[in-house]
Every structure is written in C-alpha cells, then in structure tokens.
Simulated scan of single mutants.
Amino acid sequence: MFIVLALATLLSGCPLDGDNGKNGETGPTGETGLSGINCWDLDGDRINDSDEDKNNDGLWDANDCVTVINAERLLQSAEAEFNHQHLCEALANLGQYPTGCPSAAHTVPTGTLTRINQNLLFDDGSGGFETCNFPPNNGLLSIELRDDLDKPGEKDAWFVLDGGYIAKTLQLAYTDVIDNNSCRNECAGDVNCIASLALESGTRAECKIFYHSDTISAYERLCGVSGGGLTPTEICALSLRGQALWDVKCP
C-alpha cells in the first residue's frame, strides 16, 4: 500500500504533455510547377494555335483576348425592326414615308467604304472618338462614352452608327472575313449599304449589313464597360483589331 501511494505521489508531479521538440531541417525545394495558361490559349495546350490569333496579326498577345460585348440597344435603331427595309420600300412604292423610313428626299450617304482602325479614331472631346476626321463631316460611326445607368459613377462605351439600321445579317466563316473580306464585300456590292460589321464568334462571324434612313437616330451597340485596367473606349478601340470589324463610308 505504501508503494502504491508513493508512486501516485511521484506521478502527480509529472506534466501530462512533454515539451515540443526542435523543428527539423527544411526539406529540399520541390520542382517548379507549370506556368499559367495565357488568356488566348483557348484549349489550354500551351501552344499558339492559328485560331487563337483572333485578330490575325501574327502575334499571340492580350489583344487576342478582348471580348466584344454582345448587346445591341433594342436590336437596332430604336425606330427600326428587322423587316424595316422591306416595309419602307413597299410603302414608298405607295408614296408613303412614315417616320423611321427614309423620307422622299433621302439620299444614301456617299463616301469611300473604309476599314475603321485605331488610326482613324479621333478624340471627340468628351472621352469618346469620332471616325474619319473630315470635319465638319466626320464619319457616320463613332464611339461614345456614357454614364452607366445601372452603376452610378461608372461608364460604358457604345458603337454608334448615325442613321444606320440592319438591313440583313449573314453567318460567315471568320477566316473568310479576315482573309477575303467577305463581310466588307457584301457591303461594297450593295449600293444602299453604308456600313458592315463582322462580329467574331469562334470560327464563325456574324456579318451585319447596314442601310441608312434620315428619319431615325442611330444604331447603337455596347462595346466596353468599366474595369479590367482599360477604359471602356479603349476596349472598344482594341476590338477593332479583329473581334469587331467595321467598314463604314467615310466622306
């Protein structure tokens, strides 16, 4: 009995947990991991594939990552619908020219069909751009900077084509648009066409052919929003390198 009590007394003075030992030596450095995937590397294979050079300039860089925002305001000019041209022609044959349709005195704007690039963008004094730079008769296309109605304090940028409305929309191979100017040629071969817009969508392109009316306001398309380190108008301008190809009559 005496031995048990003595052992219990001895153990009661011992800590239940021992002290932590010293840290061991740092192990060897592991192998370096793979680099991240570039934004233009759509299939993630770390190879610069031809279809990933979106603007077809022979370079694989951030310009191939610009995303065109697919948002038209009311699909067209606010006063026009997809069957607008056919209705207006039918009414004109009856001597009727309702608002929205070209007036009896309307003439198609003249000029040279021109590929709009960053060299043809000129400061409009309010954060946007005019095109062609033949004042006071600048081109029909502009890029306008506007307040974002849903996000106070932020800005949006819009492509604006004065008096323009969509007469027809075609689905074309994107390579044909780039290599053979197939969308531009559709406009060039149509005496009523004032502009064409080819929107890249993977291997395809949506080609819009525009006619003009002197009684409507403008075709508008959202092309840039705040964020990402670029201004909205810079995003729109970069998209002109391949994602949004505009050919417009310049005076």
Score class of each variant (00 low, 15 high):
M1Q: 10
M1W: 10
V4F: 12
L5M: 11
T9W: 12
L11M: 14
S12G: 12
G13E: 06
C14M: 15
C14Y: 06
P15W: 02
L16N: 06
D17R: 12
N20D: 12
G21I: 05
G21F: 06
K22H: 09
K22R: 12
K22Y: 09
N23F: 05
T29E: 10
T29V: 03
S35E: 14
G36E: 13
I37K: 13
I37H: 03
C39A: 15
D41Y: 02
D43L: 03
D45E: 05
N48H: 04
D49W: 00
E52G: 03
K54N: 14
N55L: 04
D61P: 02
A62D: 15
N63V: 04
C65D: 08
C65T: 05
V66N: 12
I69A: 04
E72Q: 13
R73T: 10
L74K: 09
L75F: 04
F82D: 12
N83T: 07
Q85P: 00
H86L: 11
C88T: 04
L91C: 02
A92E: 07
N93D: 13
L94K: 13
Y97L: 04
P98H: 04
T99A: 14
T99Y: 04
P102M: 06
A104W: 01
A104K: 15
H106I: 00
V108T: 15
V108A: 01
T110N: 05
T112Q: 12
T112K: 11
R115S: 11
R115M: 02
N119T: 13
N119F: 03
D123Q: 05
G127H: 07
T131C: 08
T131N: 09
C132N: 03
N133L: 02
N133K: 08
F134A: 14
L141W: 02
L141P: 00
S142F: 01
S142T: 14
S142R: 13
E144P: 00
L145E: 12
R146D: 11
D148S: 13
G153N: 08
G153K: 07
E154N: 08
K155R: 15
D156I: 07
W158T: 02
W158C: 06
G164V: 02
A167P: 00
K168Q: 12
K168C: 01
T169P: 00
T169W: 00
I178N: 10
I178S: 11
R184I: 02
R184A: 14
D190K: 03
N192D: 15
L197Y: 01
E200Y: 07
E200K: 15
E200A: 15
T203L: 14
K208G: 00
F210A: 03
A218K: 06
A218Q: 14
Y219H: 13
E220T: 11
L222K: 15
G224L: 04
G224D: 06
G224R: 03
V225R: 12
G229C: 07
G229H: 09
L230T: 01
P232E: 09
P232R: 08
E234M: 12
L240D: 08
L240F: 10
G242F: 02
L245V: 11
D247G: 01
C250G: 09
